[in-house]
Design a binder for these strands. Structure first.
Length: 502
RNA sequence: GUCCCGUUCGUCUAGCCAGGUCAGGACACCGGGUUUUCAUCCCGGCAACAGGGGUUCGAAUCCCCUACGGGACGCCA
């Protein structure tokens, strides 16, 4: 009897839940369901700095909203737990020690500086950057002794020569020379395992039979294959799916596209339409149907039908699909319900009302004032945006604000308020001079509800889209930033505001 | 830079594995019809096998080379 099919999705709880996670989840879910197996959610929180519980909760909420359900996970339990990597450290420790004892792994005491230099040198010499094995020569005694007092990592020992070949369900045999593979760190100096180790160990103990993941992982395939061998385990079946792309064909990124799952919720998309659309990225049902439910996808699912060219995420087609769901899949009364749930609910209206109240004489005044909360994109003339600013200023300020907003860890009124105050200070402007631009970019008008509250209600994704829209509008009128201009601004920005983060 | 993966209309794709129908559908776009407007809906149109070489009676389909695109190269995942 063959083992039951088990697939998983393993997001890391850093930042906003990503559309790519939902995309991978969909195919993992479909495969497991089609074969009567289980689909598991595992939280990969081995990066102590960047992981957060809020982000973890957001992943649960986002996937549930999208209609993705898992059979086992940190929130619902299961027989193969715990499902959070930070709670499995003893398991990794045991396996790492086993690798050390077997001589398949070794401790490395090299400093970050030394490694950076090495990497730079190798890049300059047109070689693949790779650890030079400096600490490999340490005797077992010395290694153990130094480990007691010095910070160190544990690395995989990779063969010096030969080729690693592994099978991909869609691409056939993939071969990569061992000389291209780095001596991967498997335990960081903080004692946490890295992705590669934790992932292999967990997939094994959780009984994962099929690993369906993004194309970005192909090049680390050999590391994973080697770990399975060294640990004496059977490797799962690997399938690498194409990556969702921006219109310029680069890997989907929030700089160029809405990538947060919540963006689609907040911008008024139906989750079933989004899931349907993701299902047609790189995939078609055998009968070419374009409108299908998750169940229909599952019933006819065939992994081999996935095409390998990276699909460009096209908002226009998603909107068309969403329109058809609204008209064909729901009754008007149901649409009313869904609309109410969306933003016409006491929670959202309750947030807006205190802001609008001073400005109200009758109810009729309410919706015009609040329109920008419900609009996909407010409309305005270019002159309203540029106002009294010098020609270069609006684009510059919008870009700076976009970068600053990116850094915000807590999205609330006060944080946003002090952020704009900071920009005003650095730019030596009065807040009052600075803000009209943003009022227009966000609300479409200089007469509107308080800006910071508005931004805080809209959330990061929609705010980013509005800034981008304003920037595009400026570019269309010859007042945007050129590629060079952005580069130059980036330098200026770094010196007065600090480095950008992604 | 090195390695890996990919490449059918502007976009999502069918066809490819088991060579042989004017390369099919959808979005977008354009035109027409229905509609007091708009939208919906209906009809029509535009538009692609990256290039070159091979194998073959015959290649989008099999093989090779080139070009282009993407990804990876972290004590991130």
């Amino acid at each position: 009897m063959t083992a039951p099919v088990r697939t998983r999705i393993a997001p890391s709880p850093t930042g906003a839940p990503h559309l790519g996670t939902a995309y991978m989840a969909l195919f993992n879910l479909a495969y497991a369901r089609k074969h009567g197996g289980q689909f598991i959610l595992r939280i990969e929180d081995t990066d102590q700095q960047r992981s957060s519980t809020e982000s973890e909760q957001a992943i649960f909420d986002a996937l549930k909203w999208a209609g993705i359900q898992w059979d086992e996970g940190p929130d619902c339990g299961g027989d193969h737990g715990p499902y959070r990597q930070s709670e499995r450290l003893d398991i990794y420790e045991k396996e790492i020690n086993r690798l050390l004892e077997q001589g398949d792994a070794y401790r490395c005491f090299c400093s970050t500086e030394r490694l950076n230099e090495l990497r730079a040198q190798q890049m300059a010499d047109k070689q693949t950057p790779r650890y030079d094995g400096h600490c490999l020569s340490l005797s077992a005694e010395e290694s153990v002794k130094r480990a007691q007092s010095e910070p160190h990592v544990v690395r995989m020992k990779i063969p010096d020569s030969g080729t690693c070949q592994f099978h991909d369900e869609l691409r056939g045999e993939v071969s990569i020379e061992w000389s291209q593979i780095d001596h991967q760190v498997i335990r960081k100096s903080d004692g946490f395992p890295t992705y590669h180790l934790a992932n292999v160990v967990d997939d094994h103990y959780m009984g994962i039979t099929h690993v369906i993941r993004g194309e970005e992982w192909i090049s680390s395939g050999p590391k994973h294959i080697l770990l399975y061998q060294q640990l004496g385990w059977d490797a799962p079946v690997f399938t690498h799916l194409p990556l969702l792309r921006n219109p310029d064909k680069s890997k989907l990124s929030k700089r160029k596209n809405p990538t947060g799952i919540f963006y689609f919720r907040d911008a008024g998309f139906l989750p079933e339409a989004l899931l349907n659309y993701l299902g047609m990225m790189g995939y078609t049902l055998p009968d070419q149907r374009e409108i299908f439910s998750l169940d229909e996808l599952v019933d006819t699912f065939d992994l081999k039908r996935i095409s390998l060219g990276g699909p460009i995420f096209d908002l226009a087609k998603l909107k068309w699909l969403n329109g058809r769901y609204l008209r064909e899949k729901l009754e008007p009364a149901q649409v009313v319900d869904r609309l109410l749930q969306w933003k016409a609910n006491p929670d959202v209206l309750g947030k807006i009302m205190p802001l609008a109240l001073q400005r109200l004489e009758t109810f009729s005044d309410f919706f015009p004032l609040a329109q920008f909360i419900f609009n996909e994109q407010p409309d305005y003339a270019i002159e309203e945006l540029t106002g009294k600013f010098e020609p270069e200023q609006p684009a510059r300020l919008l870009k700076i604000a976009e970068w600053e907003l990116e850094k915000l860890s807590k999205w609330d009124r006060d944080a946003i308020s002090s952020l704009f105050q900071k920009i005003a200070d650095i730019e030596e402007m009065k807040l009052k001079q600075l803000l009209p631009l943003f009022f227009v970019a966000i609300s479409g008008s200089t007469v509107s509800l308080p800006l910071f509250d508005g931004i805080s209600i809209l959330g990061p994704d929609i705010t980013r889209m509005r800034f981008r829209h304003a920037l595009e509008k400026l570019t269309d009128h010859g007042q945007g930033l050129s590629k060079k201009g952005v580069k130059k601004l980036e330098k200026e920005y770094a010196s007065s505001y600090g480095n950008r983060i992604d």
